[in-house]
Write a protein that binds this DNA or RNA. Sequence first.
DNA 1: CAATATACCTTGTAATACAAAGTAACTTAT
DNA 2: ATAAGTTACTTTGTATTACAAGGTATATTG
Lengths: 110, 110
Amino acid sequence: MSNFRKQFNKGVLELGIMKLLVEQDQYGYSLIEEIHSRSGGIIELKDGTLYPILYRLEDQKWIESYWETQTGRGKPRKYYRITESGKQRFEDMLEDYLDVNLGIQKIIKH
Amino acid sequence: MSNFRKQFNKGVLELGIMKLLVEQDQYGYSLIEEIHSRSGGIIELKDGTLYPILYRLEDQKWIESYWETQTGRGKPRKYYRITESGKQRFEDMLEDYLDVNLGIQKIIKH
DNA sequence: CAATATACCTTGTAATACAAAGTAACTTAT
DNA sequence: ATAAGTTACTTTGTATTACAAGGTATATTG
């Protein structure tokens, strides 16, 4: 992946993950798929990127996890749910993201 | 500055700097002011951030520099001008930025 | 003369996306 | 039944980069 693409992803991925978790509990693998499909295939989140993000968010108590065994078959899945402080954090991040975005748009569209 | 704010800045600052240099030659200090004013005061670029970016861009031959002495008085200023390959790089970056942006917008606005 | 603004530069730190590797269970095709 | 593929989670190491905090030096203003 191009290096500037990586740079633009910074922070944005965390924001996207938080947003999906605000909507509903999800497990890691489903987050990868959701990010991909809902972004229209534009954003690809690698598993080696996702899991460290999830552990980070959990360390900060912005999300919590619980294991869920599949009925009958299927590997157990580790679900994540957002906490109250996580919701606040998401709001803060979103605001900052929109701000930066607005600022850079003004510079670019000239 | 908040940490997520920093993250959102990654890459975006380089993009903004390149955009301003596509428009016209500028020296470091003026870039800081332009980024600030044109973003409506939203984006603040620190000098300790700017200069390393400029050296990086110059190493890659995306920009070139030249000193200009001020008529009569005033410190000499180091101006930067974008190169041909720099213009191409800017186009590539812009495309990637708009892509990522579109992708994340789709996830967020739901 | 002191304070402020202009202008440039350097070092060290923290954050984080990715590549690459691994483990393991389940599913599908041959 | 076996091999190959998919699902699912984990870890280690690397590269990038924005910032804080320090510095130098000249010019302007009170």
